[in-house]
Design a protein around this nucleic acid. Structure first.
Lengths: 227, 227
DNA sequence: TCAAAAGTGTTGATACTACACCCATGG
DNA sequence: CCATGGGTGTAGTATCAACACTTTTGA
């Protein structure tokens, strides 16, 4: 076996796709990176230190670059093209984290972007900041595209949609999250029934108030029974 | 930015889950690794060299350790627990490759194992060689478990099942592949119809011969139209 | 009283399950 | 002519899309 320490191998990093719903659009946290070009942005990321697990690294980078702690995350995929980083060979493991709606306004020093989607198939995503297209560094447009594809595939049977919502939410809010991720409108009655039939929501007897229309019932997620 | 070359970071490797159907069971290629313990086996793997892409590394390891070339593969997930390899911190990207039925007998210098599955939920897989349980090195049991879970999730809408079959096959053979991956029997009429309704098979006008029953029609996969 | 959004009922179409049955071949 | 597996028909059920409709609030 080769000596692990002296062997020349690529550097290892993690990149974070931190998503939130803003104005009915799916948005990702990006950081300005003027060192990589004018008006260039990149996903938050950082190197994996020796003897640190990937999960530890994600938690560290989350805290250091965004100040967020205690967020759930899951691994997406690993990108290893030697040319993806002009500074050298850096293999990066992409992770997904979801930002519950109330955390958005917590004064984060972060730019937010819109992720649009050309057509229904795969491919890189395009990013917009306040309506104008955004230049993304490295292969981060491809990472965002893969992320949305993955989200669309599992939103129906997983609980990820609720990670983008506050602890108590209306059914319409859940529908908005689904529509933002799928990029198309959904029919309200069908959506409501399918959601309630899953048996994962409990109707708190509280109501949303302050709107100029009939108040909506507030639901909460019941903890998962061991599957 | 830290100097990429002198920075101390984990080593990077890839591991291969090479699957085939044998005797109606899902099997994976493993290699004996007496250096890691008595009667211990591991998935084929190798280190990622500097300035080599992950795909290049997979192709290289496939050729070096199994002699296989030209096989399609796809990324599974990345495992980075510092304790997963007792020799040091090695982060490994797992890849899946599928072995078409006729290649199985091509005199590969490889042991094959059965991967059984306890229950329906996730968790590590258990491996068996000729009926007796097998000791797997590292976290390779977990990798195999995750792989089967992933396969089950996408077998219905992807073409992976056909990568385990020869170029021409009977519908029953396709069903056997699905049953091996899902670990449960399927109803023949429903399976046939769903498969044919996908419109991805063409009926070659040839028939399977030599069996003591009605001959089955041989089908072939039509190339995917750009999705 | 009106606008707006919450929430429910109904209907036709589609897809799936489960079983019964027929067909073609080797022995 | 029998055993074996290939291949098809059908009836009952669950699911889903689409639309119409009623309800409840703030202004």
């Amino acid at each position: 076996m080769t000596d692990l320490e002296t062997y020349r191998h690529p550097a290892l990093a993690i990149d974070l796709v931190i998503l939130a719903i803003h104005d009915g659009h799916l948005c990702a946290v990006v950081l300005p990176r003027d060192d990589l070009g004018k008006e260039t942005y990149a996903l938050p990321g950082g190197f994996v230190h020796h003897d640190q697990s990937l999960d530890q690294t994600v938690a560290r980078v989350l805290a250091e670059k965004t100040g967020l702690t205690g967020l759930a995350f899951e691994q997406l995929a690993t990108y290893g093209d030697p040319a993806r980083d002009p500074r050298g060979h850096v293999v990066s493991v992409a992770y997904l984290a979801l930002l519950p709606a109330p955390l958005r306004a917590a004064g984060l020093p972060l730019a937010e972007i819109r992720v649009t989607w050309p057509g229904e198939a795969g491919g890189p995503a395009s990013a917009h900041l306040k309506g104008t297209p955004l230049r993304l560094a490295f292969d981060h447009a491809a990472i965002l595209g893969d992320t949305v594809k993955r989200l669309r595939g599992k939103i129906d049977y997983s609980r990820i949609a609720f990670s983008l919502l506050p602890a108590r939410f209306t059914l319409r809010q859940v529908q908005e999250v689904h529509e933002a991720i799928l990029g198309r409108p959904l029919l309200k009655p069908a959506f409501r029934r399918k959601l309630l039939d899953r048996g994962i929501l409990r109707d708190t007897s509280e109501m949303q108030t302050g709107n100029a229309h009939r108040p909506a019932a507030l639901y909460e997620l019941v903890p998962p029974t061991l599957e």
